[in-house]
C-alpha cells in the first residue's frame, strides 16, 4: 500500500494477510490458487504420504497452479519415488489428472515423449509436467533431464528436493546438504555426515543449459511458488523448478514443522530462491527476516552432530555456504 501523508513515519511494520494463502481482505487476484474452492486438487485425499509431507504439498501446489494456468490441460509424468509410491498403490490413485509413472531415472524422457506426441498431433494447449525427487533428478535421472534441456522440449520439470533418497530409507543423494546425516553418511568417524564440497546444485546446471526458465521455490511461500509456476507456464520449451520440500522422516523433524523448516531454510540463506531466464539470473526472492543457520539446523536431527562443539568447523562451513548464497543470489 502506498503512503502519501508526509506526517508519517516509515518503520518496519506488518499488515494483515499478504503472505497467507488467501485472506478475505485481499482482492481475488492476489489470492492463491490454493485459496480457491475450485482448485483442482491434483493430488487428492487418501494418499499415503507421511504426516506433514512437504512433497505432497509442493506437488499439489505446483500442479494445481499449472492446471489453472492451462485451463486444466496438464499431463504429468512421475519418476519413481515417494510421490509415486504414496499416490498410486493399487487399487487407489490419488491423482485427479492424467498421470504416468514409468521408471526412476527416465521421467524427463517420458515427459519429452508425451510432448512429442502433443506436437505431432498439433495440440498446443495441453502441457506436460515431469516431476521427481532430488535423487531421481540430480542422480539417476540426470542424463535424461540434461537431454530434455538440450532439446528444449516443451516440458516443465519440477524437482521436489528433500535432500536424499527418503523412499528407500534416507540415503545420500547428490542433493544431500553437506554435514547431513543419512543412512549412508552416518555421523561417525572424523567427518560425520555427508561430505562437504560434493553434490550438485541442479538449478545452476539447468541455467548452464540456457533453457528459457529456471526457478527455485519453497513450500512455505505459496505466493512465490505459484507465481513461479505460472511464469514457467508462460514459456515454451524446457523449464526447471526446484521446490524445497522438507521431509519429517529424513530430516528428523516434527511433521507440524514442515512449512516452518522450509521457511527457516530460506531465511537462513541455505535455500536461495531465485529465477533465471535463458541462463541469466533475473530475480531473487529476498530474505524477509534473516535467521542464524543454527536455528534452522537445530530443528532437524540430521544436523544434531553439527551443533556439537567438536564439529564447530562444520557449522562454520554451513554458515559460509549461507553467506555465499546470500551474496551470489543477492538475498538481502
Amino acid at each position: 500500500m502506498t503512503q502519501k501523508n508526509t506526517a508519517e513515519q516509515t518503520v518496519k511494520f506488518y499488515q494483515t494477510g499478504t503472505f497467507t494463502v488467501g485472506n478475505r481482505l485481499l482482492d481475488e487476484e492476489f489470492r492463491t490458487v490454493q485459496a480457491t474452492e475450485e482448485r483442482s486438487n491434483s493430488i487428492d485425499s487418501g494418499h499415503r504420504a507421511c504426516q506433514g509431507c512437504g512433497q505432497a504439498l509442493g506437488a499439489r501446489y505446483a500442479l494445481d497452479t499449472a492446471m489453472r494456468v492451462t485451463n486444466n490441460k496438464i499431463i504429468a509424468a512421475n519418476a519413481t519415488g515417494c510421490l509415486e509410491v504414496f499416490t498410486t498403490p493399487y487399487p487407489e490413485t490419488a491423482w485427479s489428472i492424467p498421470w504416468v509413472h514409468s521408471l526412476f531415472g527416465n521421467v524427463a524422457s517420458v515427459a519429452s515423449g508425451i510432448a512429442a506426441t502433443l506436437k505431432a498431433k498439433g495440440d498446443s494447449e495441453t502441457r506436460v509436467i515431469a516431476q521427481g525427487g532430488d535423487g531421481g533428478t540430480t542422480d539417476i535421472g540426470f542424463a535424461c533431464l540434461s537431454g530434455l534441456f538440450d532439446r528444449n522440449d516443451d516440458v516443465l520439470y519440477i524437482c521436489y528436493d528433500n535432500g536424499g533418497y527418503m523412499n528407500t530409507g534416507v540415503q545420500r543423494s547428490s542433493a544431500t546438504p553437506g554435514g547431513a546425516r543419512t543412512a549412508t553418511t552416518m555421523p561417525v568417524g572424523e567427518h560425520p555426515g555427508s561430505s562437504f564440497n560434493t553434490g550438485k546444485f541442479l538449478p545452476a546446471i539447468a541455467m548452464a543449459h540456457e533453457i528459457p526458465y529456471v526457478a527455485t521455490a519453497s513450500v512455505h511461500d505459496l505466493h512465490d511458488l505459484e507465481r513461479k509456476v505460472e511464469k514457467a507456464m508462460s514459456f515454451r520449451g524446457a523449464r526447471y523448478i526446484q521446490i524445497n520440500v522438507p521431509c519429517p522422516l529424513g530430516w528428523g523433524s516434527l511433521p507440524a514443522h514442515t512449512i516452518k523448516l522450509a521457511r527457516m531454510g530460506v531465511e537462513s540463506g541455505l535455500v536461495p530462491l531465485f529465477e533465471a531466464e535463458y541462463g541469466e539470473l533475473t530475480q531473487s526472492t529476498k530474505i524477509r527476516y534473516q535467521i542464524p543457520v543454527e536455528d534452522y539446523l537445530k530443528a532437524q536431527r540430521r544436523f544434531a552432530h553439527v551443533l556439537k562443539p567438536a564439529n564447530v568447523a562444520q557449522l562454520e562451513t554451513i554458515r559460509a555456504l549461507a553467506e555465499k548464497n546470500i551474496k551470489r543470489y543477492a538475498l538481502l
Binding site: S102, V110, G113, I114, A116, C144
Partner: peptide
C-alpha cells in the same frame, strides 16, 4: 541422448497416444 532415453521417450509418446 541414449537408448534408455529413447525407449523412455517412446513410453511417454505411446502413453500419450502416438
Amino acid at each position: 541422448e541414449s537408448e534408455f532415453a529413447s525407449m523412455s521417450f517412446c513410453i511417454g509418446a505411446s502413453a500419450a497416444g502416438a
